[in-house]
Simulated scan of single mutants.
Amino acid sequence: MVQKIVVSKLLNSTRPLVFAMIHVPALPGTPSNTLPMPAILKKVRKEADTYFKNGVDGVIVENMHDVPYVKPPANPEIVSAMALASDQLVKSRDAHHPGALTGIQILAAANREALAVAHTTGLDFIRAEGFIYSHVADEGWIDGCAGELLRYRSAIKADHVAVFTDIKKKHSAHSVTSDVSIQEMARDAKFNCADGAIVTGSATGNAASTRELAQVLEVEEFPILIGSGVNGKNARDFQKAHGFIVGSDFKIGGDWKNDLDATRISKFIRQINNLKRE
């Protein structure tokens, strides 16, 4: 199979690539929803424009404000709303930063739905939960889905869409896999045909472990991204990673619930441009 463009860019970059998060406002049918869809999409487009104008390498849309999350399948209104949000992301990319990378995560663990949206709207990758092994999240038990998900990807001819999976993911208990190291889990993710792995801290905004990063980087030719807690103060600690997924640090006061702070974004990008992976 031809290497996916996002995988190639990650492996060949001389510095970590920066993927910024758009936390889509609470969607219809969820407890915190207050905005109609036109207002939600306007905010998504504004944030995408801000990110691309400030030089990020990619942007991910995620329905993080839909708390509390439910296990898959995601409701139809969530999937359709995220498809519309993804369309706004793609339009912003094409207007401001052609060639930038775009991705999606649909919570919680709605990997099949995210893959469908990515394929139909032209995104490059999805962030998947529960790809391999099982764990207990705040939504309940999440089963591994690699076999079913990748068969579905083949069935809809979406093999160009990369799948990056969290391993030992945040907001979860992993006692059932306590005898499986994070390095073993990364190797198994690669064996089960994931396109890369994501290492996080214990919760949103919490930094990952540099020791765990070093362990998973021993898996050759396999992109490793840091999925939480990267900021201007600690980015250098993780400079050997292939990519950073950044949400909280790009918001006012470093709080994921707040609006974007363009000054924080541009300052962070300037810092990262001076890092070297080697």
Rank of each mutant, 00 (worst) to 15 (best):
K43C: 00
I106P: 06
L107I: 02
G130S: 14
E113V: 14
D143A: 06
G205D: 11
M82Q: 04
K42H: 10
A85N: 05
K71V: 00
D66H: 10
T177Q: 03
E139L: 02
S154T: 11
K4R: 15
K4V: 14
T14Q: 15
S13P: 08
N111W: 08
T200K: 04
V117D: 10
P28Y: 01
P68I: 05
R270T: 15
P38V: 15
G229E: 06
D87Y: 14
G122C: 01
V56A: 08
H65E: 10
S154E: 14
I40S: 07
K71C: 00
I226K: 09
A137W: 01
K157Y: 09
G55K: 12
M21T: 03
G55H: 09
L260C: 03
K71E: 01
R112Y: 10
V79A: 04
F52N: 01
A81D: 04
I198W: 02
V56D: 12
N192Q: 06
Q3T: 14
S154Y: 02
H119G: 07
K91Y: 12
G29E: 07
T165M: 06
A197T: 08
A214Q: 03
L115E: 10
L260E: 05
K170R: 01
T165L: 11
D195C: 13
D143R: 04
G29M: 09
R93M: 15
I252D: 07
V70F: 13
K267A: 07
N63F: 09
I142R: 09
G140T: 04
L10C: 11
N111I: 01
L123V: 11
S154I: 03
R153M: 00
K91I: 01
N12H: 14
V44Y: 01
L150A: 06
K240A: 14
D124R: 04
S134E: 12
D66A: 09
L89A: 10
G196I: 02
L89C: 05
R277S: 15
M21R: 00
A194M: 07
R153V: 01
I245Y: 04
H160D: 15
I104T: 13
A207V: 05
I272Q: 13
S134W: 04
D195Q: 06
L275V: 13
W256Q: 02
L101K: 06
L115S: 08
V163N: 06
V216S: 01
D143N: 07
M185L: 13
Q105C: 13
K43G: 03
L89Y: 14
F125H: 04
S86N: 04
A173V: 13
A203K: 03
I269V: 14
N12W: 07
G144N: 05
A186E: 04
R45P: 07
L101V: 14
D138W: 05
F125I: 07
M21D: 03
T177A: 08
G29F: 06
V117R: 07
F19G: 11
Q105I: 13
W256T: 00
M64A: 08
A114E: 05
K42F: 10
A241G: 02
N258Y: 03
N206D: 15
D259G: 09
L217W: 13
L84D: 10
I226Y: 10
L123P: 08
R264L: 14
I226D: 09
A108R: 15
R151H: 12
A155T: 11
I226E: 11
V216I: 15
N12D: 12
N111T: 01
D179P: 05
